Amino acid sequence: MAFEPSSKVQELQRRLTAFMDEYIYPNEKRLYEEAEELGPWKVYPVIEELKPRARAAGLWNLFLPESEHGGGLTNLEYAPLCEIMGRSFLAPEVFNCSAPDTGNIEVLTRYGTPEHQARWLKPLLAGEIRSCFAMTEPKMAASDSTNIESSIVCDGDDYVINGHKWYTTNATDPRCEIAIFMGKTAPGNADRHQQSMILVPMKTPGVKVIRPLPVFATTACRTAPPKCSSRMFACRLPICCWAKVADSRSPRAGSGRDASTTACARSAWPSARWKTCAGAR
Rank of each mutant, 00 (worst) to 15 (best):
A190I: 09
K275T: 10
N170H: 14
A134N: 09
T204E: 05
M140K: 11
A57C: 05
V200I: 12
P114F: 08
P100M: 06
R119F: 10
M182Y: 09
G71E: 06
G279P: 05
L90Y: 00
T168V: 14
R222F: 03
W166F: 15
L64P: 11
C154F: 13
P52Y: 01
T204W: 04
P226I: 04
L62S: 13
A57F: 03
Y32P: 00
V43M: 14
A141T: 04
P212M: 03
E115V: 06
H116R: 02
L64C: 10
A253C: 07
L12N: 03
R266W: 07
Y25S: 08
P52H: 03
P65C: 10
E128H: 10
A217N: 15
G112T: 04
G112I: 02
S151P: 02
S150R: 11
S230D: 11
Q117S: 04
T185I: 10
S255I: 13
G58F: 10
E137A: 05
W242C: 13
P270T: 08
R273Y: 01
E22D: 11
I210Q: 04
A171R: 02
L62A: 07
L76Y: 05
K29E: 06
L199K: 09
C132M: 09
R55K: 15
E11V: 08
P92H: 02
K244S: 11
L50M: 13
R257S: 02
A280N: 14
V207W: 09
R14S: 09
A141L: 06
L64A: 08
A234Y: 01
S151I: 11
L237D: 00
E28C: 02
A142M: 10
P114V: 14
A142H: 05
V207C: 12
I239N: 13
A126W: 01
E34V: 04
I148W: 01
S131W: 14
Y32T: 01
T262K: 12
G72D: 02
G279L: 10
R55W: 08
D101E: 14
P5D: 00
G58S: 08
G58Q: 11
D258V: 13
P201F: 05
L125E: 09
E22Q: 12
A18E: 09
L76W: 13
F133G: 09
V207N: 09
A134P: 08
S131H: 08
A220E: 09
Y25T: 11
D247T: 08
T146F: 03
T262N: 13
L125F: 08
C264D: 14
P205H: 11
S98C: 12
M140C: 12
V207Y: 03
S196F: 04
V153F: 04
V245Q: 06
C221V: 15
R87A: 01
V153M: 07
P80Q: 09
M135L: 06
A278D: 15
P52K: 00
E36Y: 14
N162L: 00
K165W: 10
P238W: 05
F181R: 06
I24S: 01
Q195K: 08
L12M: 03
R110M: 10
I152V: 15
P123R: 05
Y23A: 03
E137Q: 11
L59S: 07
C82S: 10
P45D: 09
K122D: 12
R14M: 11
I24V: 14
I47M: 12
